[in-house]
Structures are given as structure tokens and as C-alpha cells.
Amino acid sequence: MSVTQFKVEGFNTFYGRSQALRDFGFELKGGEVLCLLGRNGAGKTTALQSVMGTVKPASGQLMLNGENLFGLPAKEIPRRGIGYVPQGRRLFAELTVAENLEIGLQTRKAGREVLDYALDLFPVLKERMDQRSGTLSGGEQSMLSMARAMCVDPLVMMLDEPTEGLMPSAIASIREALVKLRASGVAILLVEQRVDAVLPIADRVAFMDHGRIKAEFGIDEVRNDLSLLHQYVGVSDKAKA
């Protein structure tokens, strides 16, 4: 099976007259984790929404395995194999856990084995299948949001702050799932505020500011020079690393 090639290039996105993304782009291969770091308002969430097509970029290219997805209706982007874990989880709160997962499965008509794989990564969800998702704990909701995106059977997975507000045990579960997902050949774009959640699993780190990627480093460069974190996102290297 060929390795997934995913490339976002020259995205310019506007909210009215305000430009949120400026020539934004990155490249990602299957089995790779790229972490996107940046301060609040840097444009990270807009970047993900622009890729998913729920926010329409004015220009750009969105290439997945040689096919340009740019300009396709928003519903077509996930159908081509791009899974998305939105910020704040965005579960269908009135639907049960099983129904949320079913929504993920129907995207690309994934089979039962995909559901089983997702549930094996988050076994706690097996006990909650008939429970309304809005009544789950924060950690379980995050796991469900990720499991739902995994039910898409994605080639590329984009996650927007999946560990936000979670306890360490839940963060560990999600991190473990990401590692397994990467090992299965999925290309992962991870947006995070928490540098400590990112460093153990990232292959590369891209720093974003004012709607564009300012710099990109291999994970070893960042680990060896934690002052980069301070320089680009203003976090204390001692506190976060």
C-alpha cells in the first residue's frame, strides 16, 4: 500500500475584510505526526476548518494522494479520507455513543472492523454505547470525538486540541491512540496548546503566527533547543518541557 501524501499549499482565508490565513501550507506523509503550535488567535483552528471546507479559503491547493480537493463541497473532504476532531469535541450531544460512531462510519461506509479497532483503543466507550454522549465525562467525550473520527477510516487525521481540559489519564489514552494511529500509517496533524502533550509523539513541529507558518523544525531540534518554544509560542521551556 502506498504512503499517503497530503499537502496544503497557499491557503488564504478571510473573515470579511480580515485575513485569517496568509499563504498557509504544510506537507504531511502517512505515519507522520506534525504538530501545529501557536498562540491564541494565530489561526490554527481556522486552518483546520479551511482544510475541512467549513470555512472557505479564497485560494490555495489541497492535495491528497495527487488529487486536488480544493473547492470541493465540504461534505466531500471527509469522504476522501480526512478525519477531523474539532476543538471542543463537537459531539452530537443528544445522540448516543453508538449513534455518534455510526455517523463516523457512514462517512466512507467503513466496515465493522473499523468500529472494533476504534473501540479497542477506547474500551471504556464499549460500556457506554447506549448512553447519550452529552452525559459522558470530559475525558470520555474526547475519546468519543476521536473514536468517531477514526470511524471515518481516515488517511489523514486532524485534531484540534484533543487534550484540552483533560485529566492526565485521559491524555495518556489519547496519546496512546495517536501513537497506534501513526503506526497504522495515518498522517496526523495535531494542533495543541500544551507542548508537553505534543513533544513525546511529534515528528515535526510547525510554529504558526498571524495566519502563517513561521518556522518548522524536526522534533529533535525542538527537544535540543527548548528556547524555540519560548521564541515562537511564548511558553517557558522549563515549565513545559
Partner: peptide, 15 residues
């Protein structure tokens, strides 16, 4: 029902 609860997220799952 999914569309009713959240149109954007529904689109994110190909609905």
C-alpha cells in the same frame, strides 16, 4: 438529527 444538532460537524462527516 445530526444535522439538527450541528450542521458544520455533520458536514465534517460527509453528511
Amino acid at each position: 438529527r445530526a444535522t439538527q444538532y450541528d450542521k458544520d460537524t455533520a458536514q465534517n462527516f460527509g453528511i
